[in-house]
Simulated scan of single mutants.
Amino acid sequence: MPGITREEVAHLGRLSRLELKDEELDHFASQLDEIIGAVARVSEVAGEDVPPTSHPLPLTNVMRPDVVRPGLTPAQALSGAPAQEQQRFKVPQILGED
């Protein structure tokens, strides 16, 4: 596989609207070449008999089941509030206008 060239990195930079310096072109070209090589190696290892996975362990829905339980009544929810008005918490005004 041919390596990533400076011109390709410069083109990617223009597409990304990045202004790259000359030394950055060389640096990013070598880094992108290594990344593409690593992806190619993984692609070689993953055969058709290996199913795609999103997690290394075979977990399916590890959350607890939803159970409907009664909630607080408005009176219970407001019982500890320092101030209340029309079955709502009353807080100090912070913006200065209604």
Rank of each mutant, 00 (worst) to 15 (best):
K90S: 06
E97D: 12
E7N: 11
P74M: 01
A81P: 09
E85Y: 06
M1I: 06
E34D: 13
A29P: 09
P51Q: 05
H27W: 02
K90R: 10
E97C: 09
V9D: 05
P65T: 05
I94A: 08
N61L: 05
D26L: 12
A38H: 13
L95R: 14
A10F: 07
G47L: 01
P82E: 01
P51S: 00
A38I: 03
D49Y: 04
G80F: 00
R41D: 04
R6F: 00
G37I: 00
S54G: 15
V45M: 11
D26H: 09
S16C: 10
T5G: 14
L32M: 10
A40I: 03
T60N: 13
H55V: 00
G71H: 09
G47M: 01
A38W: 04
Q84C: 07
L59D: 11
Q76E: 12
K90H: 02
L78A: 04
P74Y: 00
R17C: 08
Q76Y: 02
V68W: 03
E85Q: 14
G37Y: 00
T53D: 03
A38R: 15
E85L: 03
D66K: 15
D98A: 13
H11S: 11
G13D: 05
D33G: 14
R88T: 05
D98L: 10
S16M: 08
A83R: 13
Q93M: 10
I35S: 09
P92V: 00
R6K: 15
G37K: 12
V45F: 13
P74R: 07
G3W: 00
E24K: 15
P51G: 01
D49H: 14
T60K: 15
G96M: 02
E7I: 01
D22Q: 10
